[in-house]
């Protein structure tokens, strides 16, 4: 039982991270299209932000392992 709850938790974390990373990518691509000369800065910040969002998801997944 605990395992399946953990699995649901992981799935929710993945959904959240997916939405987050998706909107980051969306905005980053828009910005790049608007200002192609700033691609370096945008890419670095995009990856940084995506990493932070992903970090939250990873922590959630880890905790869902632990509490299960």
């Amino acid at each position: 039982m605990g395992g399946s709850i953990a699995a649901i938790g992981m799935g929710l974390a993945a959904i959240g991270a997916g939405i987050g990373v998706g909107s980051i990518g969306n905005k980053a691509l828009e910005s790049i299209a608007r200002q192609p000369e700033a691609i370096g800065d945008i890419r670095a910040n995009m990856i940084l932000t995506a990493a932070l969002v992903e970090g939250a998801a990873l922590i959630a997944i880890l905790f869902s392992y632990l509490v299960a």
């Binding site: 992903e54 990873l58 922590i59 880890l62």
Partner: peptide
């Protein structure tokens, strides 16, 4: 502590 923890988990995962 979470910063290196996520570094660790991200690569691993």
């Amino acid at each position: 502590f979470i910063k290196p923890l996520t570094l660790m988990l991200r690569l691993f995962a």
